[in-house]
Design a protein around this nucleic acid. Structure first.
Lengths: 207, 207
DNA sequence: GACAAACGCGAGTAAATGCTCGCATTTTCT
DNA sequence: AGAAAATGCGAGCATTTACTCGCGTTTGTC
């Protein structure tokens, strides 16, 4: 197999440019209907140039998914001081939700790679990686808050919470900003409702 | 536009056969990657024959969605005696969930038309119709249980509940039957948790 | 400056795919 | 029986699309 060429500064910039273009086109058309020619055009580049940097459409999607993965990790790291896990549940959930919604609003292509279930088998890999990264984060937080929870129960809960999140994400990001808060509240309530049974009984709750 | 020919019994059977085949192929490949030639082959029929009965791929999907819509309605009608709405919340949710899961298990193509977000714009119509039918059912039940709820709040709640359901449906139907119950329980808990705040306070709950 | 490697182009290709068309067979109607 | 309508076939068309290739330009290194 041909080895990766040693990239020049110009090439690195082109790659960023192409990923940006891919994000736009994926967001507009979805992965399946997005064409590599359209991505090249969006980047102001010829199809040949695109293939100088990415072996195929799948590799492009993979690289884009990797970018999102790292942006997500950064956003979460910024939102989690140590001690966050001890906050009241609604606030904890809020702190997990907001950064992810923001990443989604800033990166239009995210949903196309994260949410959709109708992708060709080959793309399952990058998508699964994204989902797994998110689920992993959620699991960490749950583990910090509920130290007594058995591992398998924890993983199940994290998976369900992530899927609920993914389900409402589409509605949230496609809603005009004016009414967006309403759906975020709704998502918050759904997650809080799902997680509340795990909370230890609060003293004084029946004052 | 050419009017629909008067179908013979043979033709009606072919249409059923083609819808069955479409369901299988959609389920295996997803809508986008499913080819009409493959559907015809699956039905043991030539491509020309397929187009004798369905104007195009979209019309095929539409007819399939309509079939699912009616199966769903039948399943729900069977599950709802009058008075069901007054059951304890977990049981009510269970009664809503089970028939839909069953319909999904019996109809492999359902998820491909119901769940996926990456569909071409044209298919948005049948998909939306399916989602709307389900959401409508949910809204009816919620209206019966919570008569005081304002309409917009009711619709929002129904939409969210439906999306949560759709999100976990994929996991449920792809899980081997042995572990399926576990995920159904999880879905139940998520929905109960989300809806509990709407319940009127139970007397004696702090006995 | 000279050489190689990376970059860039865009017409072109092979394969896939939704769909058509001419023609043959079967069913329905009178 | 005979006409008309419905059903059936499958080679093949028109289009799309991921990807290639030959060749020219720019960049980095000595």
């Amino acid at each position: 197999m041909p080895e990766e060429p040693r990239r020049q500064a110009r090439g690195q910039r082109r790659m960023v440019q192409l990923l940006d273009a891919a994000a736009v086109v994926f967001a507009e058309a979805g992965y399946a209907k997005a064409t590599t020619n359209a991505i090249a055009r969006q980047a102001g580049v010829s199809p040949g140039t695109l293939y100088q940097f990415f072996a195929n459409k799948e590799a492009l999607a993979e690289a884009l998914a990797e970018r999102y993965r790292s942006e997500l990790a950064a956003a979460h790291q910024k939102a989690f001081d140590p001690g966050t896990a001890q906050l009241p549940l609604p606030e904890l959930v809020d702190r997990m939700i907001r950064p992810m919604v923001e990443v989604n609003l800033e990166n239009p292509g995210f949903k196309a790679l994260f949410g959709s279930g109708d992708l060709p088998d080959k793309l399952t890999a990058p998508t699964r990686a994204l989902q797994k990264a998110v689920t992993g984060r959620v699991a960490e937080v749950l583990a910090a808050r509920y130290p007594g929870l058995p591992t398998d129960r924890l993983e199940t809960t994290a998976a369900v919470a992530t899927q609920i999140f993914a389900a409402l994400l589409g509605t949230i990001v496609t809603t005009p900003a004016a009414h967006r808060e309403r759906w975020i509240t709704e998502l918050n309530q759904a997650l809080v409702g799902y997680l509340t049974p795990l909370e230890p009984a609060r003293s004084g709750s029946c004052g």
